[in-house]
Design a protein around this nucleic acid. Structure first.
Lengths: 118, 118
DNA sequence: CAGTATCCTACCCGATACTG
DNA sequence: CAGTATCGGGTAGGATACTG
């Protein structure tokens, strides 16, 4: 709807529920790889389906690389690409901000809950 | 669902369709204020309703301050708070990344559209 | 001018079951 | 092991009309 704003497009992607978490977990392990089940274990609460669609979208965007070992059963490995790694930098800055300032945001919301009804 | 991850919570907020755009426009004007209609003019495509709910959520989070001049008709002014300004820093880093790298992401998607069906 | 109120649709995401 | 298929609830967000 505003194709001229790259930031909007980017947030459409990394703003989905699990994407930033998947990138974070892969970044912590980078440049090593993680298998599907390992990722799942490290992301509490994610379903098989959501991990699958999230990874597909990241692969499609070129942020994550997928490597299949043609064994049986198959072993599939995921890692951040160079592009994914470069995204991790500004993303981790945002994480630091969140860890520092979310308490303030929470407090602001509590104030809003208490005062305006009265 | 994962209340322990502040980054998730933050992205839930700034990941909504118009939030980052509103913050950006307010940041460009900071420390000056903008009125409701001025904001609307500077954000092509946003509806009155979505600007309203987006601003309410930002005010509630303590990222934006709202000031009403009790004239008739009323004049309402918005500006970023200190907290909002501090968020603008990592956010603008993400914008720079987006402007630099969205073309790569787009190209990656085009490749995905062309090759895998064939 | 700066909002609400209402209706409506698309789609995100979770739960569950099935497969090579 | 690493997925896909299907169903359904909740909600983000657009269109439109109304108000102090």
């Amino acid at each position: 709807m505003d194709p001229r704003c790259p930031a909007r497009k980017l947030l459409d992607r990394i703003g989905t529920k699990w994407t930033s978490m998947v990138v974070k977990v892969l970044a912590e392990e980078a440049p090593d790889e993680l298998r599907f089940a390992e990722l799942r274990r490290r992301i509490p609460g994610i379903s098989q389906k959501m991990l699958s669609v999230t990874l597909q979208s990241l692969v499609r965007d070129g942020l994550v690389a997928r490597r299949v070992e043609p064994t049986v059963p198959p072993a599939v490995h995921y890692r951040l690409t160079e592009l994914g790694l470069s995204l991790e930098r500004p993303l981790s800055a945002l994480r630091v901000w969140a860890e520092t300032h979310m308490p303030e945001i929470d407090r602001s919301n509590q104030l809003a809950d208490e005062s305006p009804p009265g």
